[in-house]
Simulated assay, not measured.
Amino acid sequence: MIRKLKMEDNEKVMAFLGEEPSINLFIIGDIEAFGYEAGFQQLWAQFDDNGEILAVLLNFYNSFIPYAKNDFDVDGFADIIRSFGDSAALSGKEELVEKFEGLEGLNLGKKQITFFAECRTAEHLGNDDLEVKKADISDIDRIIAIRETIEEFPARPDSRDMLLKAMETNTGRTYYIEENGEMIAIASTTAENSISAMIVGVCSRAEYRKKGLATAVTQKLVSDVLKEGKTLCLFYDNPGAGRIYKRLGFQDIGMWTMYR
């Protein structure tokens, strides 16, 4: 049986999702931030005959993320996605979302697969003498300025608003190294919730690369988040970046697929 979730389901839902906190970072974070009654967000679950959850489906502004540990009602979830029209986006664990490929009436769009890694321990983190600072709201324009120098980071018209909202709601933070008042390396989190956080936006200005600055910022960020009892996770598709993250203690836990 598949039904829409309500607040009274929350304890059971969080227990189900919490067994893989990194994989479920987006679902957990959106539930904590917006609950079950927001107009732009809905959640459904498939239950077995004993009332135990077998699978969960999140819709957030027509972006869908399914999660299950074993077999689930793919057709039932697909019917829900179809009911929102043909502009829905889908993402999630590779082995789950690929089950939706080829289903009639689902126009999934371009497929992108990335590595998904997590870090649960600080034992691989080192120390250095570089001064790493935590940004606040007054630093937003400087964060935007360094990101705009990075070719891999496409510009978004709502970038400033998203950064502001993340800081105001404590769902994201940015650490940085500066020189002469200019940020030269940064690393951020997004989708932070009570048990996990995702690292994004790791970069340094072109003239400061290969000096270990981005690694130092990331190391400080990872250390502080782990001290709060949270699990860190990230996407990557660059093997070089993957090697750096693994030196800091990240381990691959699967592949994440997005259809846009």
Rank of each mutant, 00 (worst) to 15 (best):
I2R: 03
E11A: 13
K12F: 08
K12R: 12
F16V: 13
G18R: 07
G29H: 06
D30C: 04
Q42W: 00
D48P: 08
D49A: 09
A55V: 02
L58P: 00
P66C: 10
Y67A: 05
D71P: 01
D79W: 00
E101G: 06
L103Q: 08
G109I: 10
K110P: 01
R120C: 12
H124K: 15
D128V: 00
D129N: 15
L130Y: 13
I143A: 01
I146R: 06
R147L: 11
R147I: 04
E148D: 15
I150S: 06
E151K: 14
E152Y: 03
F153P: 00
A155W: 04
R156S: 12
P157C: 04
M167P: 05
G172L: 10
T174E: 11
Y175L: 11
Y176C: 07
I177W: 08
E178R: 03
N180K: 14
E182K: 13
M183H: 03
S188A: 14
A191R: 12
V202R: 09
C203L: 10
A206S: 14
K210V: 04
A214G: 14
A216W: 04
D224Q: 13
D224F: 05
V225T: 15
L226G: 06
K230W: 12
T231F: 03
F235S: 09
I244R: 07
G249D: 12
F250Y: 13
I253M: 05
G254Y: 06
Y259H: 03
